[in-house]
Design a protein around this nucleic acid. Sequence first.
DNA 1: TGGTTCTGTCCATAATATGGACAAGAACGC
DNA 2: GCGTTCTTGTCCATATTATGGACAGAACCA
Lengths: 253, 253
Amino acid sequence: MEPRQGAQAIRRALAVLRILAAGREDGVPLAEVVRTTGLTRPTVHRIVHVLIEEGIVERHQRTGRYAIGNQVPELALARPRPSRLLIAANPSLQRASAAIGDTLFLTVRTGNDTLCVDRRIGVYPIQVLSIEVGARRPLGVSSAGVAILAAMPAQEARKIVAANEKRFEAYRTDVATVLGEVAAARRLGYGMREIGLIQGTKSISTWIKTPDGQPAAAMTVSAVRTRLGPRREQEVAEILLREARIIEQAIGG
Amino acid sequence: MEPRQGAQAIRRALAVLRILAAGREDGVPLAEVVRTTGLTRPTVHRIVHVLIEEGIVERHQRTGRYAIGNQVPELALARPRPSRLLIAANPSLQRASAAIGDTLFLTVRTGNDTLCVDRRIGVYPIQVLSIEVGARRPLGVSSAGVAILAAMPAQEARKIVAANEKRFEAYRTDVATVLGEVAAARRLGYGMREIGLIQGTKSISTWIKTPDGQPAAAMTVSAVRTRLGPRREQEVAEILLREARIIEQAIGG
DNA sequence: TGGTTCTGTCCATAATATGGACAAGAACGC
DNA sequence: GCGTTCTTGTCCATATTATGGACAGAACCA
């Protein structure tokens, strides 16, 4: 069902775009795109420069790095603004943020990536703000990614993790480690990372499923490690799990 | 300098995407994409369906129409939110909206299209709300498009109008009419349409240029025709022209 | 019924995208 | 200075890939 052919070039261009998106404003050097896509350099070079001519990609004057261009948000305006999920999750995020006090993230899956789509800053004076709205990471390197993988059939999760293999080393992890964390999350009922992407932080993530059982998103709390001892981890997880079920109801109806 | 080759398929896919973007939420039937792009149906069909598999395009269950998909706004998140222009134009839009009382639009050029990027509703009880943020039209069919064409070298404007020829009939206009309106706008110093896209409305647009003389955007007032007699047209045009110069300063520095 | 839209599929063919090979620039060490 | 290793950019013969004419089914209307 999947493999419709006759458009290799288009698929490749999109793969390049997704890598560039992960680089956000700063962009990505050509060599890195070549490495992570597995395409040859002439091919990536050609694709990227055609996309520049078309306004879909921009190149930073100083650094020479490539980034998502102006025309992408322009195309995006064709869609009505806030997504169903964002609307459904809003009250839960508000409640959970008030109850917990640490930074909350809402993260969706897009292809083989996680994408942060909302963030709420809590009242506690020390907040972990590492991840911004729009941040994109290979599924598996963040606790949100682990949670989302844990919520899908093991085989599918393994496939995605394998596809991301090349990109893991940049985050100092690997396929085996990620699969271990996913298994642990399945046992626990939520995703957890003792060592967050930032030194000294800890994250807890619950998954949110669509009515058909597919994971739609993850809700994450990140805090300095000392704020999330075993006791509080339990409390926070319970709040997240409760709100996740509420969001599932909201997107289900 | 322009014609880098070896990526016909990618360029075609983007042309298709831009047409789909013009259809907004409702989308566009395949046949219309075929007509306006000038590609063959098998080609468009193949492109569109690959884009669906990739999540870039969606198809409406009921109507079978094709529309911009979820993944486009997701890619757009890679760019920092509000554009330079939007920030620079904000105070001017606020002032002009308060002074005039009718609906104000900020429209940019993107390729051969105009794209509405901001709208301010005025205090007067009858407002022309035909155009929404995200609305996309071939350059030339709206007063904003005419203004933008008037602000560029005549030769370039003619090229764009010619490229849009196929799309004009859907708006009940043609190349000759558009070029006439552009010439009139050049003489006047601003774009004007006695017959707006909606019956009984009238629009006035000023252009905003970047420091290098390229038109960057247009600022438009739309109102029911009776609100914009010759005297008031003059007043409104003066306000728009003044604010346009202020925005040009803001994006120039 | 035939006529007119629309969408979808096949496959031989030509044109297109590919990638190996080469080159040149930049940054670093010594 | 000169080698080493990193990067980006370009060429072009080649085979893989995208193309579009032709065919077909579905929906709608008279």
